[in-house]
Design a protein around this nucleic acid. Structure first.
Lengths: 170, 170
DNA sequence: CCAGAAGATGAGTCACCACTCAGGTTTCAC
DNA sequence: GTGAAACCTGAGTGGTGACTCATCTTCTGG
């Protein structure tokens, strides 16, 4: 790949992340192009569809999160996912449903959640009966609602506290 | 209002409820018109914009729910709201944010939640520290995620159980 | 250098959809 | 019955936004 092409690709990804974070997933491809200092055609040369572009930056997000899971507790990690969702305004769509094809990019995240859940159970912080899909569902729900509903940081914290309490034994 | 106009208005509302329930809020006005057995122009004669139509059926939904609250417990009611959200695929948007102007149609719902919350606290089923906005947030989150994520009835039930547990004292 | 391949450009195409309105139809007060 | 107001019809308008492609520009191996 030519060096200018590589440079443009990077610029487009960065511009897309910023643009979608600001305006949500329905920001136009042209907005991204302008921000990247590039023509629309160039965006489509690198990403055949707008969805492909969305998927690309969502994968970056998921990658970041999955790495972050390495040294987190379950609770910290769920909080981090919600924060990231609010910040990027796109992960939400990824978690939401199969509208976009993320391939197995979600697999890594699910695996980490499973690991952290098991760990939390061992530490006696979560009931043994809690399943992974329930944690995923609650996390997704909080992330979506926080973003779409514009939850304040305080409400976010208090709401997550209630959820965590629901997972705890006793 | 002429009788045929009244009949059409009713048919349009019914058709809109069904159409949006099936295809979500981005179903087209023409789909609604066809289902109502009416021309597009007629739909717009009764509802000046597509959003006005959405608002109308969301208000019906909220009305239904608010009445249902009269003899429910907090937990039953929250479950009912989530079910309704999944069924109609529009209430979600109503709860989500201020994109659509619902006027004070949400006020009634919020009031009922406040009443049921107070009642649940008196019965010792919910901690005194829990606030109304937290309950609303959790309910909204569950409703949105259940609808967008296509939660199975089982997952829905188990997830709500965790939330309720988080609200309970002890 | 420079040829030619790879890449960039951006006006234009196309599909979609909310909304309009000129002309035809139905209702109803009298 | 009848006339006019209210209503309905649906082809048409306008705006939007994803995507294309003929043409021009930039890079790079030799």
């Amino acid at each position: 790949m030519r060096t200018d092409a590589q440079r443009n690709r990077t610029a487009i990804l960065a511009a897309a992340a910023e643009t979608f974070a600001e305006h949500g997933p329905k920001a136009t491809t042209e907005q991204v192009a302008i921000r990247a200092g590039v023509a629309v055609g160039t965006v489509f040369r690198h990403f055949p569809t707008k969805d492909a572009l969305l998927v690309a930056i969502m994968k970056e997000s998921l990658q970041r999160l999955t790495e972050l899971a390495a040294n987190s507790t379950l609770f910290d990690f769920v909080s981090a996912v919600v924060d990231e969702a609010v910040r990027t305004r796109t992960v939400v769509a990824a978690l939401a449903g199969p509208e976009l094809d993320l391939g197995d990019a979600l697999r890594g995240l699910t695996d980490e959640i499973a690991r952290l859940l098991k760990q939390a159970k061992s530490a006696g912080e979560v009931r043994a009966a809690v399943r992974v899909d329930e944690v995923m569902a609650l996390m997704t729900a909080a992330a979506q609602a926080a973003q779409l509903g514009g939850w304040s940081v305080g409400l976010r914290r208090r709401t997550l506290a209630i959820i965590f309490r629901g997972l705890a034994p006793g």
